[in-house]
């Protein structure tokens, strides 16, 4: 009687994936918004890439990271929403009453959220190719972009799962996802850093880790393999993941503890 952690994690992840697929409205809006970013900004703003600061870059490649990060954050947010749903409808307690591994109970929805993120990111990149995307570094560059998207998504999944496990409340978890807006827009979202006019926005963009994610993705899509520029994104991810996953782990421990 009883399974290994792997078997439990597999079973619970599978069930989370099933639940997500049966609620298409849990991922379609986010996917639409991300595709919308790509289409509308490319259509409306691509003219500004004539400016010298863009150094002849293709605006599609410039705006694609915004769309990808938006898809990644949305997908990873699904992890937290899955957990909150389980807690609210009592399924979480039911799992706690079985011999299932405590780790698997928390990890299942997070892995499902990461899978959702992965597929959404692939779809967005696919759309970009249909729109005529050209990538300086080719297939390897796309892989790098995917890795960065997953890394950044993982950081956000840790955050959203942590909020979910701590508050155990759907409204609070929903409110927690509003961090999406400052993360995406207080950055070099539409134009390079040099073109940002307001001083406060420059400060915000410098603090916002998403800026470094955007920059490393853009480097690989537009300029090529420039080691230090790419590392900035990786470092931002490592720092963010360390913080949010620790937060998630502490919250998870509290949620499954019996104190």
């Amino acid at each position: 009687m009883g399974n290994s952690v792997w078997k439990d994690t597999w079973l619970i992840t599978l069930r989370s994936v099933k639940t997500t697929l049966r609620n298409p409205f849990s991922f379609i809006p986010n996917l639409m918004i991300s595709a919308f970013f790509l289409l509308v900004y490319e259509g409306g703003l691509s003219g500004i890439s004539q400016l010298p600061m863009f150094e002849g870059a293709n605006y599609l490649a410039f705006i694609l990271p915004v769309s990808i990060v938006s898809a990644a954050i949305g997908g990873a947010g699904g992890a937290g929403q899955g957990i909150v749903k389980d807690i609210e409808n009592g399924f979480f307690s039911r799992l706690l009453l079985t011999p299932a591994s405590r780790l698997a109970i928390v990890l299942g929805p997070i892995i499902a959220g990461m899978l959702q993120l992965f597929i959404q990111t692939l779809l967005i990149i696919g759309i970009a190719f249909l729109l005529g995307l050209e990538v300086e570094t080719g297939f390897g560059g796309i892989l790098f972009v995917l890795l960065i998207a997953i890394g950044w998504g993982l950081a956000f999944a840790g955050y959203s799962a942590g909020v979910a496990l701590r508050t155990k409340n759907a409204q609070a978890a929903q409110a927690g996802t509003f961090i999406f807006f400052p993360l995406i827009f207080l950055s070099t979202t539409f134009v390079p850093y040099e073109l940002i006019e307001a001083q406060w926005l420059k400060v915000a963009a410098t603090i916002n880790p998403t800026t470094y994610i955007f920059e490393s993705m853009r480097t690989v899509l537009i300029d090529g393999w420039i080691f230090w520029d790419l590392m900035q994104g990786v470092i931002a991810i490592v720092i963010a993941c360390t913080i949010t996953i620790t937060f998630a782990a502490i919250s998870a421990k509290k949620a499954v503890s019996r104190g």
């Binding site: 069930r15 099933k18 639940t19 049966r22 609620n23 389980d86 409808n89 009592g90 399924f91 307690s93 039911r94 009453l97």
Partner: peptide, 9 residues
């Protein structure tokens, strides 16, 4: 009383 079911299954 606090155990529930996953309504989507």
């Amino acid at each position: 009383q606090e155990t529930g079911v996953d309504p989507d299954l």
